[in-house]
Simulated scan of single mutants.
Amino acid sequence: MDPIREPILRVESLTKSYDGFLAVNDVSFDVAPGELKALIGPNGAGKSTCFNMLMGQLKPTRGTVTFDGRAITGLKPRQIWRLGVGRTFQITGTYQSMSVIENVQMALISHHRRIFSVAPYAWKLYRDEAMEFLATVGMEAQADRPCSILAYGDLKRLELAIALTHRPRLLLMDEPTAGMAPSARIELMQLTADIVREQGVSVLFTEHDMDVVFAHAHHIMVLNRGQLIADGDAAAVRANPQVQEVYLGGGTLFKEADHA
């Protein structure tokens, strides 16, 4: 019998209230080691608010967040990052004046705590290591290109490489395919799924593209008006009456094709 694996992330009764309005209301869930889990819901459902509490950008009104057995509720984002939680954002935040590899080198310099001592020769540091991360996301051939001329899909790949530089055990990805062409969306999430499988990283991501979600997520959670209304595999979520009502007013949710 396989040993029981404790969740890498445990969220209990997470709540965020603004002057009586419950943006997130009593949300509880787990993310298992090596799991690729989606958090979906209509606009305004509370997904980004939930993410911001997990990463420390927002303080919960009540509830707890536990990462790898340690309570992280109330810690600052940098403290949570140091513990092994990474994040990508809906809008990319790379340094446009730098090259692709320089962006990754800067992330490595921060990871190695040398940010205040290397300014004159930063371009020399961690170049080989940076190339390894670029190879992971298929960007090594563009290492010396300026970020300002990259296609948006390549910027998203670069952001993923940057997020991996401190070798997180959990990666939070907020709308990772937003603004990308349909084919590029599938490619990015396939890349993410490969990283989950090969490196054992756990990923929690929000997403509006249902093809992306059902093609790649191991489990899917649905948030609506701040409340979690479903949490299960693709078949269970697709058949859930509340989810059907939220998305299509009671119609058939998503196509029935197998997205293995």
Rank of each mutant, 00 (worst) to 15 (best):
M180T: 09
E245M: 13
P182K: 12
Q242V: 11
G226N: 10
R157D: 01
G74V: 10
G232P: 08
G86A: 11
D258G: 00
R78W: 15
V11N: 00
Y126C: 02
L191V: 11
G138N: 07
A178E: 00
H166A: 10
T165G: 03
K124Q: 15
F205K: 00
P176T: 02
V11D: 04
D30N: 14
L204V: 07
T15H: 10
T94W: 07
R157H: 11
D2K: 14
N43P: 08
D194C: 11
M180H: 05
G138K: 06
D128I: 10
D233R: 05
I91D: 11
I40S: 02
P7K: 03
H259W: 10
P33E: 12
Q190D: 13
A217R: 01
P182I: 13
T206H: 04
R82V: 10
P7N: 01
A178D: 01
M1I: 11
L150P: 05
M55T: 15
E140Q: 15
I91M: 12
V222N: 01
A32R: 12
I229E: 04
D209P: 00
Y247I: 04
L108T: 08
E187S: 01
D2Q: 15
V203L: 04
M180L: 13
Q244S: 10
R197C: 12
A184T: 09
A178N: 06
L155K: 08
A236S: 14
V24Q: 09
P7I: 02
E129T: 11
E207I: 05
A107L: 04
E187W: 05
F214T: 04
L150V: 07
K124F: 12
S148I: 06
G34V: 11
A257Q: 12
R114T: 08
L58F: 13
F89S: 01
Q96V: 10
I229K: 01
F133V: 05
I80Q: 00
S117A: 14
G86Y: 01
Q227Y: 09
A122N: 02
R113G: 13
T206W: 01
S48N: 05
D68T: 13
G34K: 02
H208P: 09
R10K: 15
V222I: 09
V213L: 08
M139G: 03
V118A: 11
G249K: 08
D30M: 01
S13Q: 14
